[in-house]
């Protein structure tokens, strides 16, 4: 699915958060932005409905996939 964007170049960021120090970080969503600064502002604005003790974003391009659904484990 394509998105109409005003920015020349954007990248997708995955958003991770957790409610307590004891639980692991989990993916809560994603944002699309032209740079890290705006991605942080968007992540905080979009996913701040819970009382997270920690939130972080990761550029999707930085994630190294080992295998995808349906692919046999190498």
């Amino acid at each position: 699915m394509g998105f109409v964007r005003v920015h020349d170049e954007v990248q997708e960021y995955e958003v991770f958060a957790r409610k307590t120090r004891l639980e692991p970080l989990r993916q809560v969503g994603a944002v699309v932005a032209p740079d890290d600064e705006l991605a942080m502002a968007y992540a905080r604005a979009t996913y701040d409905e819970e009382r997270w003790v920690e939130m972080m974003i990761v550029p999707k391009a930085a994630v190294i996939q080992l295998w995808a659904p349906g692919e046999a484990e190498a």
Partner: peptide, 11 residues
Amino acid sequence: PTLEADIAAAA
């Protein structure tokens, strides 16, 4: 201009 910016404006 973008949905994310809409949400940020509201927030």
